[in-house]
Design a protein around this nucleic acid. Structure first.
Lengths: 225, 225
DNA sequence: GAGCCACGATGCGCATCCTGCTGGTCGAGG
DNA sequence: CCTCGACCAGCAGGATGCGCATCGTGGCTC
């Protein structure tokens, strides 16, 4: 399970991150709301664990509201020292799915994390992938960047889908050949380069922030960076 | 929202039921685990609010485990006087989605109820259409009849999708031309007949129950009949 | 029962579209 | 400065989807 932890208290962050990793989850950490929002918007997570109060203008509630307004449905678990009922209600109203008061027992955090992670896996097979302002709709087989429709060929679609499903991670040529082309050997040509190039023309041209990045001698990566 | 409340304490039950109803929900109440399980298994609810400890053999945890083992995914919120971390973890591990310790503020219960109810309602844009044993998966653009994959061309797929979205209703040729072909005139040919014919060959051949029915001088209709 | 009309099946050809390769260029890194 | 990997424009082969024409069939009407 890919979890994004947004927590400014380094001590708490280390403790939570370590525990979740030991439970077999992949954890990204952001120390403030701005970075958290950026990561949440650009990569795909199964769950967000947010401190309710964060430095830097963007606090937890604000972060969730922003994400929800962009159509994101990723479950959110709030952590907070604010234990008043009103505060808890506010967090849930903003779009949070759960609210845990500090100090908490790690076992309970873990149980709640897994309770939340359980849901989306079962219902709702992901129908949209998103990286920054790039959106791929599995249902309509449609791609939009910045809200504008982009025409994409079938193979390009598969390629993009695969990149987006691994947003923020390097995808090797071999993986692409296997998963997108069903080749189990090296075709000794530059098929991949060509298709990546075509995708770039359609997705990145006209935008100053390129999303598809080359990782020399390794492969490609899609990211909002 | 249809909510099932399973709570043996009459006082608490009355209080919770009233509050939820005032918030616009429909509430069924069961006073013990046995009745609760029966109701939960026989009717459709959007959420279960369960007391953790119940009289009559079937307690909250047991109830959830039973439901989950039957494949039910209805969200569950536990209420309990047992506040120990271990107890809370047990409840969540059993398949609960949230856990609220008594005594609680009603505002918080309501917020959590609505947080739980939010998810399934909002996501899940229909991804599958079904008529009898015929299934069309919008996500994978795949058609199966009786569990067996059927290969279908794009245009045929659109045609079938349109028929299935109006299952049980007659679909006129004009409608089909408009919606499936984007024609706004009569092509004076038998395009439709041809495609319906092809669909039939793929879907109905080899099954004794045809699904696609001709309605003379009107159009076509898909139906399990 | 004959004729008519709506619908059903099949084969073919066209056109479009997609895809992968070639070959030359660019640029980063050593 | 050199080399190797990556990038891109153009091209051509190929598959495939699609619609039309034609012929066949079955039901409704008179």
């Amino acid at each position: 399970m890919r979890i994004l932890l947004v927590e400014d208290d380094a001590e708490v962050a280390r403790f939570v991150k370590k525990g979740l990793q030991e439970a077999g989850h992949v954890v990204e950490h952001a120390a403030n709301g701005r970075d958290g929002l950026f990561l949440a918007a650009s990569e795909q997570f199964d769950l967000l664990v947010l401190d309710r109060m964060l430095p830097g203008g963007v606090d937890g509630v604000r972060l969730v509201e922003t994400l929800r307004s962009q159509g994101s449905r990723t479950p959110v678990l709030f952590l907070s020292a604010l234990s008043a009922v009103d505060e808890r209600v506010r967090g849930l109203k903003a779009g949070g799915d759960d609210y845990l008061v500090k100090p908490f027992a790690f076992a309970e955090l873990l149980a709640r994390v897994e309770a939340l992670g359980r849901r989306p896996a079962t219902d709702a097979p992901t129908t949209k992938l998103r990286v920054a302002d790039l959106e791929l709709d599995l249902l309509s087989r449609t791609v939009t960047r910045g809200g504008k429709r982009v025409e994409v060929q079938p193979r390009e679609f598969r390629l993009l889908e695969h990149l987006m499903r691994h947003a923020g991670q390097v995808v090797t040529r071999t993986m692409l050949l296997e998963k997108v082309w069903d080749y189990h050997f090296d075709p000794q040509t530059n098929v991949i380069d060509v298709h990546v190039s075509r995708l770039r023309q359609k997705l990145d041209k006209g935008f100053d922030k390129p999303l598809i990045h080359t990782v020399r001698n390794a492969g490609y990566m899609i990211r909002a960076d």
